[in-house]
Design a protein around this nucleic acid. Sequence first.
DNA 1: TTGTAAGCGTTATCAG
DNA 2: CTGATAACGCTTACAA
Lengths: 334, 334
Amino acid sequence: MTLTDVAASAGVSPQTVSRVLRTPELVSVDTLERVQSAIGALGYVPNLAASNLASNRSMTVAAIVPSISASVFADALHGLEVMLSPSGYQLFIGTTGYSPEHEEELVRAFLGRRPDGMFIVGAQHTDAASTLLRASGIPVVEAWDSSENPVDSLIGFSNEDAVRALVEYVRDRGYAHPTFAGSFQSGDFRAAARRASFEASVAELYPGESVRVVDSGVAAVDLETGRDLLDATLREHPETDALMFASDVFAAGAVLECARRGVSVPGELAVTGFGDFELSSHLTPTLTTVAVPNREIGTKAGELLLARMSRGGADAPEGETVDLGFEVVARESA
Amino acid sequence: MTLTDVAASAGVSPQTVSRVLRTPELVSVDTLERVQSAIGALGYVPNLAASNLASNRSMTVAAIVPSISASVFADALHGLEVMLSPSGYQLFIGTTGYSPEHEEELVRAFLGRRPDGMFIVGAQHTDAASTLLRASGIPVVEAWDSSENPVDSLIGFSNEDAVRALVEYVRDRGYAHPTFAGSFQSGDFRAAARRASFEASVAELYPGESVRVVDSGVAAVDLETGRDLLDATLREHPETDALMFASDVFAAGAVLECARRGVSVPGELAVTGFGDFELSSHLTPTLTTVAVPNREIGTKAGELLLARMSRGGADAPEGETVDLGFEVVARESA
DNA sequence: TTGTAAGCGTTATCAG
DNA sequence: CTGATAACGCTTACAA
């Protein structure tokens, strides 16, 4: 079923059918109706691959995230989709599993689809991936990271500053022995940045205090791992009075486990998270954490991409760097 | 940068470059090397739209889900992607927001990309959508539902049977006044099926008992709504001794709120959920619920699609209906 | 307002 | 093992 079939059936030229689809206002009312009913009768669905090839626009945006099932990325993707779909853009999604090599493969594969724009988590890529991205000439939004040398646009917040602010908060509340806990697998540069910031902040704000980090390695980001991290901390660093997690998920797992064991929070042990997930405000005690703008990252990325994709290449605005900030959320757990 | 440019640079025909990409084993070693280095030097990325048009294969699978950020669907999508990507298939994802009309639009738009397969949540669609799906001729997997008239393949479990099993469980534990609570927005046919099954099961298993359902309407599926549903139940149906939620999310919200208020679970009020989310086993008390195979739905769908997509149309296996079952998970809350 | 011609970048097919 | 040629289904550019 092709344009040509529809044209034959409606007694017009293929071009007229194409006009009915793209620019109906340029077609006379009765041909319009005739063609539309032919389309309906034949069940014609335009082949977008052909359209793409001929017009050099795919009406497609590629999104590359570490994982779909991590709610932070799911939220951003949702924001992105809500922003793009009214304008007719469709979303290609791929996951890297935090592997830079896999990311590079994905970039290559996705670029082959000739997307009109690209959304990618993180600002650190393999050299080849960065080169490909730059060479592609399409608007690219990197997210969730800060960088002094973005490919194009960059939307995020400073993981470093956020952790630093949390360490300050903990110090101001009088806790003397903070410990940081999380899973720091090699490709997760955001987690690594948080950890590095914790180490630097403690060195500066807690002079003389030793720097304690508990690392679960490649363990999944789930409640179970939070419980394990709590165990490890209690075992390895019993002097800890404030346990700071790299994610709310871990913190929630720890808080739930403390409740079960009768460990009082924050009395015996203060706990902080990172991310302000929905669960965090429903725990007992509620969780002190830092809120980051997941959903807004997606919507803002959508806005930026839309602006760049709609104009011609020439007058397109420059790549922007947008810092959406973060907010320390003081609650009961610390 | 096109195939032809690479061919010119390597001193071979375009067709040979194509062979290097698709069937390198048919090319002599030294041309292979020459072409590959030309590809690298020029930074050539094949245009898949052109490939799609010429070969009539897109190496693409379209997935249509109500929402990405609902973890059940995110899990399934993850399973699907993990299954498909080793074979080189890429995933197109669209969300319907539980609107059948939006679903139909998406089906139409996605079919325009000529995917090699399609994954769609639910087995109830608009007539037009069903017709389009059937006419497309590609393998289609409907999921999460049961139906006597699937478009093609169907993977899921019976929401009806699962709720029925849970009602039986509750009755067997001696609870006398069960109430069902959830959000039943119009396009969510799975939620509607659960509700209907609750009503039928109570009518049968609790003769003489009135059928109580609390409906939050279009409220978001989140912990907050769970708390609201708990409130409404306590207010409207104080005789309730077992509160059965349409989702673990609601149940978790209610259990957390009960802890905060000092309502004893299951002493004063038993609670059940639906879905067996990770959180459910970490609550105090742990949540009695029914486990459904989210991730497996995705992987099984991937398997089925792969099998159908690899063979030629002729000897492709028939559409299958796979019932992955469910399991009542008895824990502390009921 | 409509039609004609050419071409988008790749692969299928058949020859060599 | 390699190359020439003709599609694939659509849009752009121009002509009528």
